[in-house]
Simulated assay, not measured.
Amino acid sequence: MTGPEKLLDPTGLDDRAADDTLAPRPPGLRGLTVGLLDNTKPNAVPLLREIHAELRGRAGAGTSILYTKDYFGMPAADDLLKRIAGECDVVVTAVGDCGSCSAATVADGILLERLGTPAVSVVSDSFLVSGGAMAKVQGFPGYAFAAARHPVASLDEKQIRERARAVMPEVLRILGVDS
């Protein structure tokens, strides 16, 4: 009989210390700077911009800063993550709509949390298992991330807006803000 299988981190980050402590949540989002981390997947930027518009309308969030990582299948580089954490109050990263990009999007959120910045990772609901596996490998098995209905990449502007509105209760909950 075989034993449990060991999960391997395809990003090479599994040697980092396990830490499942969330960054402190702000009492609200009014006037706060929202970081938007684009993982370069189709429709990531429109989805992030719509989520920011919803955060402004629902919770009074301030301006946003858009960042783009090098490659969707790997977590963002340490220097980019540190820059984001230094410039933003909260971060939304998206969009995980395949296996490797979902895992990397979740890793980005966890790494930002460990830098002290509240973060929401948005993955499509078809890849929740991939995101959950990465959270476990990163030593943060209970990390909550938001699930948008799949697909995201092939949607038009109106459909992206609908996806952003639909995911907002989870985004607000993860950020600790009443909706």
Rank of each mutant, 00 (worst) to 15 (best):
G3M: 14
P4C: 15
E5W: 14
L7C: 12
D9T: 15
P10A: 00
P10W: 00
P10Y: 01
T11L: 06
L13T: 14
L13F: 11
L13S: 13
L13H: 12
D15C: 13
D15R: 15
A18T: 06
D19V: 15
D20T: 14
A23F: 07
A23K: 14
A23Y: 05
P24Q: 15
P27K: 07
P27S: 10
P27D: 08
L32D: 07
T33N: 11
T33H: 06
T33V: 15
L36P: 04
L37T: 11
N39K: 08
N39G: 07
K41M: 05
P42I: 07
N43E: 09
N43H: 10
N43M: 10
A44H: 01
L47Q: 12
R49M: 06
E50G: 07
A53L: 05
G57V: 04
R58F: 12
A59N: 00
A59P: 00
A61N: 00
A61L: 01
T63I: 10
L66H: 04
T68Y: 02
F72G: 11
P75Q: 12
A77G: 08
D78E: 13
L80K: 07
I84C: 04
A85I: 02
A85E: 01
D89Q: 11
D89Y: 08
D89T: 11
V90P: 01
V91I: 08
V92W: 12
T93R: 05
A94H: 10
G96R: 08
G96V: 11
D97L: 14
D97S: 14
D97E: 15
C98A: 14
G99A: 04
C101E: 08
S102Q: 11
A103F: 03
A103S: 13
A104H: 05
A104T: 02
T105I: 08
T105P: 05
V106M: 08
A107F: 10
I110G: 10
I110L: 10
L115E: 00
T117K: 00
P118R: 04
A119E: 06
V123E: 07
S124A: 05
L128M: 10
L128A: 12
V129Y: 12
V129P: 03
S130C: 13
G131N: 12
A133R: 14
M134D: 13
V137C: 11
V137L: 13
P141S: 01
G142F: 08
G142T: 13
F145I: 10
F145L: 13
A147K: 14
R149Y: 09
R149G: 09
H150V: 04
H150Y: 09
P151Y: 12
P151Q: 11
V152R: 03
S154T: 12
S154P: 09
L155V: 09
L155A: 14
D156S: 06
E157I: 03
E157P: 00
Q159C: 05
I160N: 02
R161K: 15
R163N: 05
A164M: 09
R165Q: 10
R165P: 01
R165A: 14
A166C: 05
A166H: 06
V167D: 01
M168H: 06
M168D: 12
M168W: 04
P169G: 09
E170T: 05
V171A: 04
L172A: 11
R173Q: 13
G176M: 05
D178I: 01
